[in-house]
């Protein structure tokens, strides 16, 4: 079976020889090509090449079309990204510097015609051509409730959200929701078949239950109006969200859940069961210091907890560049070894 078929089997519960094994070695692509991050991320063909090389070197199942999260801010006018050759790029130029900028913020009528989309399109075109028939191609789309963080910083966004004028907040969110919907459609049309809907404010660890119901859920529904749910993945940016999984499944219709590394995997699996896919996520920051033996044991435990009954995927979180290669190999070797199904799941 191809990795794409193995993923489909995991979602539906059909027989498969093993679980899907996902990994995200994003910034490592620059190192692989011997380029600075600034140069690497400047061209879509370089990102595609980096992703293909990382996938082929380590043998995991997926590729990413994600450059860096701040790329979405570039679609709305961000002009400066702080690159660092040892880690993840940061947004260094906030499009919204004060609340007066919100009414002036314009969402491009067609993001695929925007210059900031061009390299993403190039990357996706190559990935689709090279592995689109056999491998999952992942895209990353930020929810409307989180996008303002990239546009104005977390501090200013929390000020507006928690104690600012509701009308202005909703005006900003309506614009962000428009971008989110456009991105989801554009990525799907360009060949991405796994759409990671990143919604940290969709976790009660960010906003609490009351605000989740009155704020997060209504805006997530708006983000996803008219959006097909196939391939859509609920992800809260390394934060746990077990307590809202049933509601997300029932009200948003998203059945694939990419958990936080600290989540109670058994509990999440029990809630999702055969209705969708539980994506267990290793606490990969600890991979920096674990020994290969410790790494292997952690992966074994995750597989042991998540695999019974099928509908399980092994995944990673942020995969810092400081992780030693030996631990990346130990992790993936263990995921393929312990992720095998000897009989029916």
């Amino acid at each position: 079976m191809t990795p794409l078929e193995i993923l489909a089997a995991a979602v539906t519960g059909a027989p498969a020889p093993r679980i899907p094994v996902f990994c995200n070695l994003l910034d490592q692509g620059a190192r692989e090509l011997g380029l600075s991050q600034r140069d690497y991320y400047a061209r879509g063909e370089r990102v595609a090449e980096g992703q293909l090389r990382m996938m082929r070197r380590y043998g995991y199942d997926n590729v990413w079309s994600l450059f860096y999260v701040g790329k979405e801010a570039e679609l709305l006018g961000c002009r400066e990204i702080l690159f660092n050759d040892t880690g993840t790029p940061n947004v260094a130029d906030f499009v919204i510097r004060d609340w007066d900028d919100i009414p002036r913020l314009e969402i491009p009528p067609d993001i695929t015609a925007h210059p900031a989309w061009a390299e993403t399109a190039t990357c996706l075109d190559i990935l689709r051509r090279e592995v689109g028939a056999t491998h999952p191609i992942c895209a990353y789309v930020t929810a409307s409730t989180t996008l303002p963080v990239l546009l104005m910083g977390m501090e200013k966004w929390l000020e507006l959200l928690l104690s600012g004028p509701a009308g202005l907040r909703d005006e900003l969110l309506a614009k962000c929701a428009e971008l989110t919907r456009q991105e989801l459609a554009a990525y799907r049309a360009a060949g991405a078949n796994v759409l990671v809907y990143s919604t940290p404010f969709g976790s009660t660890r960010f906003v609490g239950h009351k605000r989740f119901q009155t704020f997060s859920m209504p805006w997530m529904k708006r983000d996803l109006e008219g959006v097909p749910r196939a391939g859509l993945v609920y992800y809260c940016g390394m934060t746990d969200f077990n307590d809202v999984i049933p509601q997300v499944m029932d009200e948003l219709g998203i059945t694939v859940h990419y958990l936080g590394p600290g989540a109670d995997l058994a509990q999440a699996k029990a809630m999702i069961g055969g209705r969708g896919l539980t994506c267990g996520v290793l606490d990969d920051i600890q991979l920096i210091h674990w020994t290969p033996r410790e790494t292997r044991e952690q992966v074994r435990r995750m597989c042991q907890t998540g695999m019974p009954g099928g509908h399980f995927l092994f995944g990673t979180g942020v995969m810092p560049m400081a992780i030693p290669e030996a631990n990346i190999r130990a992790m993936l070797d263990a995921a393929f070894e312990f992720g095998r199904y000897e009989g029916p799941p």
Binding site: L158, L161, L162, S163, R205, V207, G208, D243
Partner: peptide, 14 residues
């Protein structure tokens, strides 16, 4: 409290 959250941290300090 299992419902303690980032918004509370922020507003407590503010």
């Amino acid at each position: 409290d299992p419902d303690a959250n980032l918004a509370q941290h922020f507003m407590t300090a503010q």
